[in-house]
Simulated assay, not measured.
Amino acid sequence: MPQNELTSKVGALNDWYRLNSAVTVLTRALTDESAGKMALVSSFGAESVVLLHMVSIINRDTPVLFVDTELLFAETLVYQQELSERLGLRNLHIIRASKEDTRAQDPDFMLNQRDKNACCALRKTIPLQKALEGFDGWITGRKRYQSSTRAELDFFEVEDNTGRMKINPLAHWRPEDVRTYMEENRLPRHPLVAQGYPSIGCMPCTTPVAEGEDPRAGRWRGEDKTECGIHFVDGKMVRTGENA
C-alpha cells in the first residue's frame, strides 16, 4: 500500500478504535479482509502469553513468528514449545539468521560482546524483516508502560518504507491488566519471571531486575540501548504520531 494511503488509513483506524478493547482491535486485524495478511510476532517472553491466548481463541491458524536468536534462555525455548502445544497454535514459524550470515559475522557467538546493535541486527532484525515479506502488517505485544520510547504508542502504526502496518492491541494496558488476564485465564507464566526477569531477551544481554527498578532495566544493562531494533526502520523508532 502506498505510504500516504497507509498513513491515512492508520489515522482513521486509531480514531475509530480509540476507545475499544484489545480483543476488538485484535479481532479486527485478524478477521477483516481489508486489513490484509497479518502475522503475530511473539518473543514468548514474560507477557507474550496474553496475545498468544487471544489469537488462539480468535484464529489458531494465524501465522505466529518466533525469532530464535540462538542466544535465548533454555527456559524460553521450552516455554515456547509447551505454550504452542497448550494453546493449539497451528501456524508457528521459527525464524533464525541464515547459517551463512552467522558464520560470516559471528563465528564465535561473541558478537554480542563486541557490538550489541550488530548482533541484534544479525540475529533478530534482519531475519524478521525477511520473514515479514509478503505480510501486510504485524501484531506486537508492546505497551505504553514498558518504557519512555513507548509512552505514546497507539493501536495502529505505520512502518516507514515497508508499506506495512503495525498493530499493538495491548498498547493501553497497565501491568495489573496483564496480571488479571493471565490469572483469570489460568495462563502459565514464563519460568524466569519468578526468578526476577520481568522482561526477557537473549541470555547474554538480560539480567535480573531488583525490586523498584524499571521492568526493562535488565535489558542491555549499562548500555545506551533500550530496543533490539525490530521496532526501528532506518535507525528511527517507528511511531504513528511522527508519521501522521
Rank of each mutant, 00 (worst) to 15 (best):
N4G: 01
L6F: 04
L6K: 08
K9P: 01
V10G: 00
A12W: 07
D15H: 10
R18C: 12
L19T: 10
L19Y: 11
S21L: 07
A22W: 05
A22T: 15
V23C: 12
V23Q: 15
R28S: 04
S34Y: 00
K37A: 03
K37M: 00
K37S: 04
M38R: 05
A39M: 10
L40W: 02
L40K: 07
V41M: 06
E47S: 11
V49P: 05
V50D: 00
I57A: 09
I58W: 08
P63M: 03
L65P: 08
F66Q: 00
E70L: 12
F73Q: 10
A74Y: 12
Q80Y: 15
L83T: 15
L83A: 05
R86N: 02
L89K: 07
H93N: 14
R96C: 04
A97D: 02
K99L: 13
E100V: 12
E100N: 05
R103Q: 11
Q105S: 06
L111P: 02
N112V: 12
Q113W: 01
R114Q: 11
N117E: 14
A118G: 12
C119N: 05
A121S: 11
L122A: 02
L122P: 01
I126A: 12
I126N: 09
L128T: 01
K130L: 09
G134A: 11
D136G: 09
T140K: 03
G141H: 01
G141C: 06
K143P: 02
K143T: 10
R144M: 10
S147M: 03
S148H: 14
T149G: 03
R150P: 06
A151F: 14
E152R: 14
D154M: 08
D154Y: 00
F156Q: 00
I167R: 03
L170F: 06
L170S: 00
A171M: 11
D177N: 15
T180I: 06
T180L: 10
T180K: 14
Y181I: 08
Y181L: 09
E183T: 10
N185L: 09
N185Y: 11
R186T: 13
L187T: 06
L192D: 04
V193C: 12
Q195E: 15
S199Q: 02
C202I: 06
M203V: 04
T207K: 13
G212H: 11
D214P: 02
D214A: 13
R216M: 04
G218V: 10
G218I: 08
R219E: 04
W220P: 00
G222F: 08
E223F: 07
E223D: 11
T226G: 04
E227N: 03
G229H: 01
F232C: 10
D234R: 14
G235T: 02
R239C: 10
R239Y: 11
T240I: 03
T240V: 06
G241Y: 08
N243A: 13
N243W: 02
